[in-house]
Amino acid sequence: MDRREFLRLCGLGVLAALGLAGCRLPRPSGEKAAPQTPAPYTPPPMQAAPARGPDLAVVEGDNYEELLEKGLEAMGGIARFVQKGNLVVLKPNFSVPRAPEEACTTSPRLVAALVKKCLEAGAREVRVIDHPFFNGETCLEKTGMRRAVREAGGKVYVLDALNDRYYTRVEIGGQALREVHFSRDVLEADVFINMPILKHHVATKLTMGLKNMMGLVWDRGVFHARGLHRPIAELAAFKKPHLIVMDAVRGITSNGPTGPGPIREFRRLILGTDPVAVDAYGARLFGLDPAEIEHLRLAAGMGLGQMDLSKLHTVNVFL
């Protein structure tokens, strides 16, 4: 080993030591490093934001636009549910060809107001859908839904044909319901808002949010053949809306769901994120014990929501 070789080895040794030591050095703090290595961009969550607000908001009055304005405010604002660029799907009940005054269908004024709210909140598109059991054209026309939604800037149509555009075959895996053709719009939506009307129903006593979900299914004969209540509860477990806005301003109290029937003024708009709680409030408002509605009892038993209204954080607003 000559002198030159010794020096080179020493130099390598020093470099190696420095290198090893460098691995142990404390990492530079984030604040300092940020300008040099920016953190990867994560987009804001597309799904509805986690609950920030009450479970239930009940607004009393009869001006639909005002009811919705105050109701959404009480729930924490539309921004709690709809973010910029979202695809929003609304499911009102316009299953029967009756004029809005006949109180058998969700108010088109209310639906139009919510369409506007969603668009204002930055929604990319708002679709309003139903699978009426009457003819779709007559329903769209006579309920005034087509005109109202189009004027508000949304799209409105009926799921009146079994095709890939409207329906997707989904596993429900329940006792009564194994698989059904379910609305593709709802499955693809960023935000799904259920908009039932509170009214009488000859078979299930009342039709509200959970029953309204049947309007997203093509093959409903099996619901009837299996006794309605259990299939309804199992469907509710399959898909939970991000928000429920129930039109309980006016509704028929018998001859439901098709009507015409005697109309009662409930003068309420019920908003909530808990599908069982909203329906339970509706049942109380109608004058029934929520437990009398079997699909509600089944759904609560399946852990889909709270049927005991005293356990909920409710905001009441009176106009």
């Binding site: 029967v96 009457f134 000859v202 078979a203 053949a225 006794g227 001859n255 769901p257 098709t258 015409p260």
Partner: peptide, 14 residues
């Protein structure tokens, strides 16, 4: 004894 009542539900004439 199944709760079907689809006919009653959909009858437009009650």
């Amino acid at each position: 004894g199944v709760l079907c009542l689809l006919c009653a539900e959909q009858c437009p004439m009650g």
